[in-house]
């Protein structure tokens, strides 16, 4: 049993909402019409491409290609994080790339082996979809964590340096900043775990039910994926700050300004 297909043409029916949307924006002087249209167009184009190449990836289903696909996604995620946090690619690519790669690979192997026990742990159907969800969340978590950490340090550099002068190691002096940014980055997912299902059904669960899974299966998957997302994100943000610290400070423990764009 599958989901009823949507006619691509019928997606354009959404244009009907464009009229009241533009009307409201105009009335309350919301200057976001262009931005929204830009984002919608990007979403449509990006997802269309994903639809095309995912079809091939699922058809071929070669472990090497699937792994390569995950690596490419991690690379894109890293660029996206560095872009949003205004950190230099040259200095920060490797630390951030590794801090996503390590927890995501460990979690994917664990998930496919221990949790759903599939025979081919590199099966595209699981590797690519679960990997994508882990990555998406690590991406947002890392943006919050790194942005928080480095803007806080820049703003409160005196406090950091004062701890250094009082005898702290670089890690000891950075610890309060570290803790603050980790908490800021995992707070959203901790909050969403606590309220999940109360109001809205998560996207993955809805998708599975529409796809024909029983609610019981969908819920088990949802619990598993939430835990996987949480742990992956948690370890990823810890690593990314830790690894980036190595690149971000000089031999005198001073924050390097050249790591910022």
């Amino acid at each position: 049993m599958g989901t009823t297909d949507i006619n691509a043409l019928s997606l354009t029916y959404f244009l009907i909402f464009l009229v009241p949307f533009v009307f409201v924006c105009f009335k309350v002087k919301l200057n976001i019409v262009n931005k929204v249209i830009y984002s919608v167009v990007r979403m449509v184009i990006q997802l269309s491409f994903v639809g095309i190449y995912l079809k091939y990836i699922f058809d071929y289903n070669q472990p090497l290609i699937n792994i390569l696909y995950i690596l490419i996604m991690i690379t894109v995620a890293t660029f996206s994080i560095l872009n949003s946090t205004k950190l230099k690619i040259r200095n920060m690519f490797m630390p951030v790339f590794c801090s996503i790669l390590i927890p995501v690979s460990v979690m994917l192997l664990f998930f496919n082996n221990a949790i759903i026990s599939i025979n081919n742990i590199f099966d595209a159907k699981y590797l690519v979809t679960i990997g994508g969800m882990l990555l998406g969340n690590s991406l947002s978590g890392n943006i919050i964590a790194l942005d928080n950490f480095y803007s806080d340090i820049k703003k409160n550099e005196k406090i950091y340096l004062y701890s250094i002068s009082l005898g702290g190691t670089r890690i000891q002096a950075l610890a309060p900043f570290f803790r603050k940014s980790i908490i800021a980055s995992i707070n959203p997912i901790v909050a969403s775990m606590a309220t999940i299902g109360l109001v809205a059904l998560p996207g993955m669960m809805s998708g599975q039910i529409l796809g024909g899974s029983s609610p019981a299966v969908a819920i088990k998957y949802q619990i598993a994926i939430m835990l996987a997302i949480f742990f992956t994100q948690f370890f990823s943000v810890n690593l990314s700050i830790l690894f980036s610290i190595k690149m971000g400070f000089n031999d005198f423990d001073i924050l390097k300004t050249k790591i910022f764009n």
């Binding site: 409160n156 005196k158 340096l161 004062y162 002068s165 005898g167 309060p176």
Partner: peptide, 15 residues
């Protein structure tokens, strides 16, 4: 050298 110096900054920069 730092371990031999006590520094009191003007704003006393404690968090």
């Amino acid at each position: 050298i730092r371990s031999h110096i006590f520094y009191l900054s003007q704003d006393i920069d404690f968090r």
